[in-house]
């Protein structure tokens, strides 16, 4: 019976392998999100010639734990006129959608462990890219429902802006990714990374890389595209009325989203786990080293996002829309046309 259960599989994997991976991914994302807040505060502090949190633990390293405890124990206030179900559901949706998206991102190449093909993602899906785009699009519901349910004008304005912004930039992001898909002949993230053995796609698709990164900034509501929050105008935008762990879930979702888009950018444009210095890639250790390469590249992108946040001011709303529809979208189309033409021409010759 137990032996039977152990061999019950979900897709190509045993259920317990998926479970273990799920626990690891969840733990990793929660920790990463927590420490990204610390990193963000440290980076911002040093950009502003300050030191940043350094009171809790050595170098402030336990600050995220203190923050988590604080968030858990704070009073969970809620406005009287809220939509009860949606107000409760929206933060969960935000964090849930953000975490779900990470299920398909391969942290390393498939590793052979005693004849068992170990995939370094939770679910080995052959349309992973499509899945990520679909799931991250759910985040806009979380923001909009949260803004709507709170029954607050600032929340609603933030939510409206966010919907418009996310929809506009999702188009640009999707178009940017089509160039990559054309070159890799696949929507499977692992195959896309493997297609970069000779040259990273950022070299072959610099325009798409730039478009994706700008779009990713907008999709994660990071400065200079943080219109949904816009502290100076909207207090905190869609999560104005949220407090305690509900706010914590929005925060978690936002930072997990950052990890997701940076990981995706790493897989799509920076060669994923492919090392800069060649490394034999067949054994267990090779797989782990691949994870290190992947996370290292993603960290650089995360740092870049923070660096940009603390440098550039917020765009005005109409300019944001102009940039999305009149610049990024046409450039994305142009990229598709050029890539397609080149690929077709090479196939014909």
């Amino acid at each position: 019976m137990i032996a039977d259960l152990a061999h019950f599989s979900i897709g190509p994997d045993y259920w317990w392998v998926v479970l273990i991976k799920g626990v690891i991914v969840l733990g990793f994302l929660a920790t990463a999100a927590a420490y990204l807040t610390l990193a963000e505060r440290k980076v911002s502090a040093h950009i502003q010639l300050r030191i940043g949190p350094n009171r809790v633990g050595p170098f402030g390293l336990l600050q995220p734990a203190a923050d988590a405890v604080k968030l858990l124990f704070k009073e969970n206030t809620a406005p009287a006129g809220r939509d009860k179900l949606l107000f409760w559901l929206a933060p969960a949706l935000m964090a849930g959608a953000a975490i779900l998206a990470y299920a398909v991102i391969p942290l390393s190449g498939t590793t052979n462990v005693n004849g068992y093909a170990l995939h370094w993602n939770m679910a080995h899906v052959n349309v992973a890219l499509l899945y990520v785009l679909a799931i991250t699009a759910l985040g806009v519901y979380a923001i909009f429902l949260g803004g709507w349910a709170a029954n607050n004008k600032y929340s609603l304005l933030g939510a409206l802006r966010s919907s418009a912004q996310l929809i506009s930039y999702e188009m640009a992001v999707a178009f940017a990714l089509i160039g990559v898909v054309i070159l890799a002949h696949s929507l499977d993230l692992e195959e896309i990374v493997n297609a970069q053995q000779h040259a990273w796609f950022i070299v072959m698709q610099p325009l798409a890389g730039l478009l994706y990164f700008v779009g990713a900034l907008a999709e994660t509501n990071r400065l200079p595209f943080d219109l949904p929050e816009a502290e100076t105008e909207l207090i905190a935008g869609y999560h104005t009325e949220y407090s305690s762990m509900r706010f914590g879930f929005y925060f978690l979702g936002e930072y997990v989203n950052m990890v997701t888009v940076c990981s995706l950018a790493t897989a799509l444009f920076l060669g994923g786990w492919l090392p800069l210095i060649p490394w034999i890639h067949s054994d267990w250790l090779g797989g782990l080293v691949g994870v290190m390469w992947f996370l290292g590249k993603a960290s650089i992108l995360l740092f870049l996002m923070m660096w940009i946040r603390w440098t550039l001011p917020r765009l005005r709303y109409d300019r944001l829309m102009n940039l999305g529809w009149k610049v990024l979208l046409p450039l994305g189309l142009l990229n598709i046309v050029i890539t397609g033409s080149v690929v077709a021409a090479r196939a014909a010759s």
């Binding site: 040093h46 950009i47 010639l49 300050r50 660096w307 940009i308 440098t311 550039l312």
Partner: peptide
């Protein structure tokens, strides 16, 4: 302009903080 701004903040980040603890 963006490059100029980014270079400035990077320079600031690498210089010594002025915080007095």
């Amino acid at each position: 302009e963006i490059a100029k701004g980014m270079a400035f903040t990077l320079k600031q980040m690498l210089s010594k903080p002025i915080t007095l603890q």
